[in-house]
């Protein structure tokens, strides 16, 4: 929802600048940013990927409430991937 509101606000700003989509300049930067936000989550219909509160995670792990058990089935991503 926040992303949608942010996108709408940016579109308003872009239209106020009088630029058409794809144009260079400030409006173009805005559109690029919007595209970047959209591309970050290719699954907008799914649950979001979120940042965890790592301090709380570590605290609960120490208490035994949660685990930090090594998981399988993942790959490391290079910076340019």
């Amino acid at each position: 929802m926040i992303r949608i509101l942010l996108t709408a606000a940016m579109l308003l700003l872009a239209s106020a600048s009088g630029e058409a989509p794809g144009e260079e300049g400030e409006g173009g930067w805005l559109l690029e940013t919007i595209r970047g936000l959209a591309a970050r989550d290719g699954r907008p219909w799914a649950k979001p990927i979120e940042m965890a509160d790592m301090d709380r995670i570590m605290e609960l792990a120490e208490e035994g409430w949660i685990t930090l058990h090594e998981a399988g089935w993942y790959v490391l991503k290079e910076d340019d991937e």
Partner: peptide, 30 residues
């Protein structure tokens, strides 16, 4: 979903977390 997770991010499932570059399960045996 094939979630790509930065350090500190958890997947859409909420229980698999990138902890310092390793994927961990927060719920093993819990």
């Amino acid at each position: 979903h094939a979630c790509v997770l930065e350090p500190g991010q958890r997947g859409r499932c909420g229980v698999r977390l990138n902890s310092g570059g390793e994927l961990v399960s927060l719920v093993y045996g819990r």
